[in-house]
Simulated assay, not measured.
Amino acid sequence: MNYTYQYPHPAVTTDIVIFSVRDNELQVLLIKRGGEPFKGSWALPGGFVRMDESLDECAKRELHEEAGLEGVYLEQLYSFGAINRDPRERVISVAYYTLTPSAHLNPSAGTDASEVQWFAINDLPALAFDHVDIIRVARERLAAKMEYSTIGLQFMAEEFTLSQLQIVYEQATGKTLDKRNFRKWILSLDLIAETGKKFAAGAHRPAMLYRIKDPDRVEIIR
């Protein structure tokens, strides 16, 4: 198909924010750019939308090409269109995000990415383009979703304590939660059950271990 335009028009890209809770802290996956602009800088995986693909297809392709990841559920986040956000030309980016367990992910750099690495959300390096703003908006959306959903349960091992579960929610929301109120809320959902076993850590009193009753009832990020 040939495209002819009377007026100048912007290019469109997708950028992808992959969140995970690792080592008891919220982290985001970044790639190191192998080409200009911002060569050598850390950035979100992403790239230009081709003429023959949808936004969703572009996001999935770029995530695979730059970070070696496939089969990750992505939710469209927001559009970023500041006039000077890209030094090459007028570019509008449609951002995607997800919160996913990292245990089954094996990211690897590819195409124009020289490295790929997880970074703690509170200790990010200098980022290319306006990616710090994209991550901020994604974090706000994630925190809002955690307030009313049960997606935190998808991060738990087969058996876990309520304190371990609370850490996931605190990291995702960036808030310190009241222990009694959190436990009252999570138990009221009737999604987890005691295993009859306890977990001992250091000098602390052993804590009850729980399991998810029905994994199909646990929400994913959507």
Rank of each mutant, 00 (worst) to 15 (best):
G71D: 13
A43R: 02
Y96H: 07
Y7L: 11
Q171W: 01
F119Y: 14
A11E: 13
A203E: 11
D112Y: 14
G46W: 04
V132A: 15
R183P: 00
A59F: 07
I83C: 01
F129L: 12
P87V: 08
S114I: 12
D133E: 15
T100P: 00
A200C: 03
K60M: 05
Y96T: 05
Q154S: 15
A95I: 08
A82G: 08
F38N: 13
A193W: 00
D86W: 04
A138I: 09
I167K: 01
A109R: 04
V132M: 08
L162I: 12
T13A: 12
F38C: 09
V168H: 05
E159Y: 02
V17I: 12
Q164G: 15
S114M: 07
H131G: 03
D23I: 01
E70P: 00
P87Q: 07
E62S: 03
A193N: 08
P10H: 06
A193I: 12
I220Y: 05
S163F: 05
G174T: 05
D123F: 02
G35V: 12
A201V: 09
S54P: 00
R222A: 11
S54K: 03
K60H: 13
G71F: 04
D52Q: 09
M146S: 04
G40R: 02
M146T: 06
A109F: 02
S54W: 00
T14H: 02
I135R: 05
D15M: 11
